[in-house]
Amino acid sequence: MLHITLGPERAVDPKTDELGRDRVGFSETMSELALYDANHGCWKLGSRAAKEQFAIVSYGGIVRQAIEIDNVVPIGAGGRSVINGRILHSGHPVYDRYVGKESPVQGVRNPVSYVDVEMDGRPCRCGCGGSVVGHDFLPGHDQAALHARIKQIGTVAEFLDWFDTVRGNKRVGG
């Protein structure tokens, strides 16, 4: 799960802000939509962000909002991204577990962090039925999936021949 720690609300210049915002940060007076609009964008995010299903936003050590992520889109030339999604409400398991409660991330310098939680999991890509969080495979399952596919072709050498033919690769050394 993606976690974003906010500072207090402050004004920004809409003419220079990549999203045209006039404020960022948190204030008790902000509506849910105002909080989302002010803070869903212009974050330095790693490649893991695109794999996350949910984001939580905290201020003052308390989670203030939960979002189901639709997509993460790069914006501008500075390597920053926008998180597009749907604001979650009471009755959703992520909202009920986190919003209004102590943040699972405390005392970090970087405003962007990740939390491994089971509810953010998705199926292991090998097809085993296991659940992974923040990765594509359970440990070692990437190799199992690869070798299962090689076995469908035959030997490793036969797999390499097939792969090179399909990809149009020129054989190196042999």
Rank of each mutant, 00 (worst) to 15 (best):
M1P: 00
L2F: 02
T5R: 09
T5C: 07
G7C: 09
G7D: 15
P8C: 11
A11L: 14
V12F: 02
V12W: 05
D13C: 02
D13K: 01
K15V: 08
R21Q: 07
D22R: 12
D22E: 14
D22G: 15
R23C: 10
R23G: 06
R23T: 15
R23I: 15
G25R: 08
G25N: 10
E28R: 12
E28K: 13
T29P: 06
M30C: 12
S31E: 12
Y36E: 05
D37Y: 14
N39D: 11
H40E: 07
C42A: 12
C42R: 10
W43Q: 03
W43S: 00
K44H: 15
L45A: 05
L45T: 03
L45G: 03
L45N: 03
R48E: 10
K51E: 12
F54W: 05
F54G: 00
A55N: 02
Y59G: 01
Y59V: 03
Y59Q: 03
G60F: 07
G61V: 07
G61P: 01
G61Y: 03
I62Y: 04
V63T: 03
V63H: 00
V63W: 01
R64G: 00
R64M: 04
A66L: 03
I69V: 10
D70C: 05
V72N: 02
I75A: 07
A77F: 15
G79D: 07
G79M: 07
R80S: 04
V82R: 15
I83A: 01
N84R: 12
N84H: 12
N84D: 13
G85H: 01
R86S: 10
I87A: 03
H89V: 15
S90W: 14
G91M: 07
H92Y: 06
V94E: 00
Y95M: 02
D96V: 02
R97M: 08
V99G: 00
S103Q: 05
S103Y: 06
P104S: 04
P104E: 05
V105M: 04
V105F: 02
Q106E: 11
R109V: 13
N110W: 09
S113W: 08
Y114A: 00
Y114P: 00
V115T: 04
D116K: 11
D116T: 12
E118Y: 11
M119C: 04
D120S: 05
D120A: 02
P123N: 13
C124E: 00
C124N: 01
R125E: 12
C126W: 00
S131P: 03
S131C: 08
V132D: 01
V132T: 02
V133M: 02
G134W: 01
G134H: 01
G134F: 02
D136S: 09
F137H: 04
P139G: 05
P139Y: 05
D142G: 08
D142L: 09
Q143R: 15
A144N: 10
A145W: 10
A145H: 09
L146V: 11
H147K: 14
H147Q: 15
H147Y: 12
A148W: 11
A148D: 13
I150Y: 06
I150A: 01
K151M: 09
G154H: 09
T155Y: 11
E158P: 04
E158G: 08
F159V: 05
L160F: 15
D161R: 14
W162M: 14
W162E: 12
F163V: 13
F163R: 14
D164C: 10
T165I: 12
G168N: 07
G168A: 03
K170T: 15
R171P: 06
V172Q: 10
V172G: 09
G173N: 13
G173V: 15
G174T: 09
G174V: 09
